[in-house]
Design a protein around this nucleic acid. Structure first.
Lengths: 131, 131
DNA sequence: GACAAGTTTCCAGCCGGATGGAAAGTTCGT
DNA sequence: ACGAACTTTCCATCCGGCTGGAAACTTGTC
């Protein structure tokens, strides 16, 4: 499978595929006699794995370290487990902050909604969009 | 209050304070006779708000527009209300996504904790994360 | 009146995560 | 045999959000 087909199946660009190879996320694939990258189906799986891991907010560098462990054939999942737990804690923190920010924004929105609409006639007093 | 004190109280760097000013997040403060920036306590509040909003994943440019609404204070209009509501909707969406990611991660972590370490040998498949 | 610490402006560079484009080589369809 | 579509490498650029450093100035302390 050539790079274009791989990219399509994994729903990324060929640029991204080469970029991932360059940062060690994808092993260097076999090459055709003419030098084209030649992937097997594992590469699709791997790219999908990357996508999934990325969707949970893991940075590419973190995904690399998980995959390196995997590639090394480690017999322990401790690395992955520790990473997951750390990430989970970060996620909780982020959710908390989001909810705090949401509360503040809700306050702003409520105040805005209670205002007299007729006070909104002066174009100079609504600076939000204009500026 | 000089820039260093402000930075300390808001837990950002002086570099960041000047940067925020440069992108319109902070108004240009008063200056001492010698040209030092001279802030009041509102600036601390504002920086803290920025930090909170930023923690939600809002871009600084978006925070700028929210703060402009805040600055408009007692005045509002359709545009500003719509803007806020859009931000709120995005925020809710983001919270939902994070909670989903959290649930997924929790599942993974649980699975990892229950796994027999000796079963983690397949070089092409990390059993913790693989789907 | 010396010296450190703080501040000023300005310009450069870094990070992650790509994306763009040029110039050259390859493969496929007709 | 030709052209389009694809692939190669390499280098540049983008974006947001800072961060670093230089050179000059101000302030506070001994």
């Amino acid at each position: 499978m050539k790079i274009g087909e791989l990219a399509e199946q994994a729903d990324v660009s060929t640029k991204t595929v080469r970029y991932y190879e360059s940062i060690g996320l994808l092993a260097e694939p076999a090459r055709t006699p003419s030098g084209y990258r030649d992937y097997d189906h594992d590469a699709v799986e791997r790219l999908r794995f990357v996508r999934d891991a990325q969707a949970t907010g893991l940075a590419l560098a973190e995904i690399v370290s998980i995959l390196e462990l995997k590639d090394a054939g480690s017999t322990s999942c401790q690395h992955t487990t520790a990473l997951l737990e750390r990430h989970l804690a970060e996620l909780d923190e982020q959710i908390t902050r989001l909810q705090q920010a949401r509360a503040e924004l809700t306050g702003l929105a409520d105040r805005a909604a209670r205002l007299d609409p007729s006070s909104c006639t002066d174009p100079n007093r609504c600076q939000v969009i204009a500026r």
